[in-house]
Simulated scan of single mutants.
Amino acid sequence: MSEIINRVAISSIVTINLEDIYPREERVVFDLKPFLFQELILREKEFRAALKEIDWTQYENKWVAITCTADAIVPNWAFMLVATYLHSVALGFAIGDLKELEVMISHESLRKLDSDSFTDRPVVVKGCSDFPIPLFAYGKIISLIQCQAKSIMYGEPCSTVPLYKKQKS
């Protein structure tokens, strides 16, 4: 009887598991709604005073979405002012809702990826994960590696869906 050889394990295929590079720290919302007068108007003096009273350490090691859930016109500087307080304590922040925060986190996480390690190699982007990866991340990974990779597949190395194959020159 011949020895069973795992050809996937010895191949040059590189597997990218987005779950491995995607941060899992808590995501929270900083809502400007409680700072509005009658949920309509932001009064600058009162807003600045209220921000100084907040214990910002509650946002330590968290990702923060800075938003306003009230149907009010809030000046851009108000969101930016909150960001100045979060800058030194939060892992990161985005002005927008939680979906926009996830896009920002995806972008930041994938920016650190060394795309040169995929040069002329077949790449599998792992499909299943226990952690919800935003669709944006899958599109972003393609834009980062397509110029480098020999081919790109989706799924598991033993069962993939082909997405891209570099043309032979």
Rank of each mutant, 00 (worst) to 15 (best):
E44N: 10
T57F: 08
A72E: 04
S88N: 11
A65T: 05
L32Q: 02
I54M: 04
T57H: 03
F37K: 10
L40R: 15
A90G: 10
A94I: 05
L42N: 11
I54P: 10
D71F: 05
L81D: 11
K62R: 01
N61W: 02
F30S: 02
V64P: 09
E25N: 09
R48T: 15
Q38A: 13
A78Y: 08
W56I: 03
F35T: 07
F47V: 12
R27G: 09
L86G: 13
N61P: 04
A49G: 11
E46Y: 07
Y85W: 09
N76S: 14
T69H: 14
A83C: 07
T67W: 08
D97T: 09
A65Q: 01
G96N: 07
T67H: 10
R24E: 10
E39C: 06
D71R: 14
V64N: 03
D55W: 00
L51M: 09
T57I: 09
E39Y: 10
D97R: 12
L91R: 13
E26P: 04
R27W: 07
V29E: 15
R24L: 03
E39L: 05
R48F: 07
E26G: 03
R48Y: 08
N76V: 12
V89L: 08
T67R: 06
P34E: 00
A65Y: 01
P34V: 00
G92W: 08
E44G: 10
L91C: 06
E25P: 07
S88W: 06
M80I: 13
L98V: 14
A65I: 02
Q58C: 00
A49N: 13
K33C: 07
D55L: 01
V64K: 02
K33I: 07
E46H: 07
K52M: 11
R48W: 08
A90H: 11
N61Y: 02
A78L: 04
I66C: 04
F47Y: 14
V82L: 13
V89F: 08
T69E: 13
D31G: 02
T84I: 12
R27D: 09
D71Y: 05
N76A: 10
R27S: 10
I95A: 02
G96K: 10
D31K: 00
L42S: 13
I41K: 15
